[in-house]
Amino acid sequence: MSQKVEQPPPTEVPLANLPSPTANDVSPPEYSAGPGSPGALQTPTPAVTAQPKATAPPTATPGQIIITPLNQIGERTEWIQCPFCLQTSKIQVRKEGSTMQVVAGVLCCLLCVCLACVPCIAHWFEDTEYRCATCHKIVATENYDGIYKTHGPGGSVQRLN
């Protein structure tokens, strides 16, 4: 003879006493009745979490240099691997006025002769050239409107900022 043991009814816990979910908690699968039989189990969809990208720049120990890829060089002097001479060298940054700077100077001159030099003094519409310090060839250019091109023996590659 087997005896049935009566289990106590489940106790209710107020929501205020429950711990708050954290980012590491995984939500339980959802169950609902399917089209076939009542109470049928549906397969839960897996949760996808995005991993944050590392944004910290690499750090160098004393005596070690960091080579910056051509598509990531900026306004300061950095070390690059030149695609022309294949040497590790610094870049030389040089800014030049564009034809748009001349047009802006002419338009300012129409207002007042004294304003003709404002686009040059304010560095409006300047293109930036990045040159290898070893072979002095242009490795990248950036137009005043943000179009960035890297140059190499096989041609140039363009990217928009």
Rank of each mutant, 00 (worst) to 15 (best):
T11H: 12
T11L: 15
P14N: 15
P14S: 14
P14Y: 13
L15E: 14
A16V: 15
L18C: 15
L18S: 03
P19R: 15
P21R: 11
A23K: 15
A23I: 12
A23G: 02
A23H: 13
D25L: 04
D25E: 09
V26A: 05
P28L: 08
P28V: 12
P28Y: 06
P28H: 06
P28K: 10
P29K: 14
P29L: 07
E30L: 10
Y31C: 04
A33N: 15
G34R: 15
G36E: 12
G36M: 13
S37Q: 12
P38T: 04
P38H: 06
G39A: 03
G39K: 10
G39H: 14
T45N: 05
P46Y: 12
A47K: 13
T49K: 14
A50R: 13
A50M: 11
P52S: 05
K53D: 03
A54F: 08
T55P: 02
P57M: 03
A60E: 08
T61R: 15
P62K: 12
P62Y: 07
G63H: 10
Q64F: 05
Q64D: 10
I66F: 10
P69S: 08
P69D: 09
P69T: 09
L70C: 04
N71D: 10
N71C: 01
Q72R: 13
I73N: 04
G74F: 03
R76S: 12
T77G: 03
E78S: 14
E78P: 11
W79I: 01
I80S: 02
C82P: 06
C82F: 06
C82I: 06
P83Q: 11
P83D: 09
F84N: 07
F84G: 01
L86S: 08
Q87E: 12
Q87G: 10
T88S: 04
I91A: 03
Q92A: 03
V93S: 05
R94A: 06
K95I: 01
K95C: 02
G97A: 14
G97M: 04
S98F: 03
M100L: 04
Q101I: 00
V102R: 13
V103K: 01
A104N: 05
G105I: 00
G105K: 01
G105W: 00
V106D: 00
V106K: 00
V106M: 03
L107N: 02
L107M: 08
C108F: 04
C108G: 02
C109W: 05
L110M: 07
L110G: 03
L111P: 00
L111D: 00
C112H: 07
C112W: 11
V113C: 11
V113M: 13
V113G: 12
L115R: 06
A116W: 02
A116S: 14
A116F: 09
V118D: 01
P119Q: 13
C120M: 14
I121H: 01
I121E: 00
A122C: 08
H123D: 04
H123G: 05
H123C: 07
F125M: 04
E129P: 00
Y130N: 02
A133E: 09
T134I: 05
H136E: 05
H136P: 01
A140S: 12
T141M: 02
T141I: 03
E142H: 10
E142L: 11
E142M: 11
E142A: 09
N143K: 10
N143M: 02
N143I: 00
D145M: 08
Y148C: 01
K149P: 00
T150W: 09
